[in-house]
């Protein structure tokens, strides 16, 4: 069944026609051409499709699009400003936390959610927070370091 849903996407109200059996991931990638959200496994096991639903990181491949009616979604396309990268993106790049880049959008969003909730996470908390986002390239080390340095920056501020 097709229907029109309305939700907030990256700060702007969006109306889109979706089918009942479409996932949020499919709607983002195929209907809205927001391909920054990646499909890694399509089963909620890798986190490449992470988006923020009302600020919480979720697997968009496990979310029916019809269920986000009236809610707020942030995708990777909504993270950076027009002129500059978000500090999380900036730091990921500077600290070498990006390799092939396929997990990066999901990692960035999970990190944003973590830091919004806990501005000064410990190393253990960082590892826990990103434990649903799989990265095969980096062994996670530089990702963890990048998030740590963001935490330290926030502390200084």
């Amino acid at each position: 069944m097709e229907r029109t849903i309305e939700f907030v996407l990256n700060g702007e109200t969006k109306k889109v026609t979706v089918n009942d059996n479409q996932t949020l991931l499919e709607v983002l990638r195929e209907k809205l051409d927001l391909t920054g959200t990646k499909k890694g496994c399509n089963q909620g096991e890798c986190g490449a499709c992470t988006v923020l639903l009302d600020g919480k990181p979720i697997n968009s491949c496990l979310t029916l699009a019809v269920r986000i009616e009236g809610r707020s979604i942030m995708t990777i396309e909504g993270v950076a400003g027009k002129e500059s990268l978000d500090p999380v993106q900036e730091t990921f790049n500077e600290k070498g936390a990006i390799q092939c880049g396929f997990c990066t959008p999901g990692m960035v969003l999970t990190t944003k959610a973590l830091l919004a909730e806990n501005s000064n996470p410990t190393s253990a908390e960082i590892k826990e927070a990103i434990s649903g986002n799989i990265c095969r390239c980096s062994g996670y080390i530089k990702i963890i370091e990048a998030i740590q340095s963001l935490a330290e920056e926030q502390e200084v501020m």
């Binding site: 990921f92 500077e94 990006i98 959008p105």
Partner: peptide
């Protein structure tokens, strides 16, 4: 830093 970092970090 990687030259392709920003384009990857922004999706």
């Amino acid at each position: 830093p990687r030259v392709d970092g920003p384009v990857k970090a922004t999706g």
